[in-house]
């Protein structure tokens, strides 16, 4: 079980949080302009990498805020935590 450093509350047990899938998938502003394939790309396609992954998490049993984390899926090390709307860290 990880410890996640919620950007609003600080370090908490993973059981207080819920994962929300891959981060930085932006809902298209004009969905009607998209072809079926383009829409399907947004709707269904998600990465599942071994290594560094950008993820959305929400502090369900806490402040209820969504935020992003950078997690290494091979060892669950959380490399960075940042608020929604903030630029992902580059390294």
């Amino acid at each position: 079980m990880f410890i996640i450093n919620c950007p609003y509350c600080g370090e908490r047990e993973q059981s207080e949080f819920k994962a929300g899938g891959e981060a930085h998938i932006i809902r298209p502003k004009q969905p009607t302009e998209l072809s079926d394939d383009e829409w399907a790309e947004y709707l269904f396609m998600r990465k599942n990498v071994k290594g560094i992954q950008f993820e959305r998490w929400v502090h369900t049993h806490g402040c209820r805020k969504w935020f992003n984390i950078v997690r290494d899926t091979s060892n669950d090390a959380i490399e960075a935590v940042y608020k929604m709307g903030e630029k992902p860290p580059t390294k």
């Binding site: 929300g20 809902r27 969504w66 929604m84």
Partner: peptide, 11 residues
């Protein structure tokens, strides 16, 4: 509620 919060906070 969770879903609505998600859209409000992220989209």
């Amino acid at each position: 509620l969770g879903k609505l919060e998600d859209y409000l906070q992220t989209e």
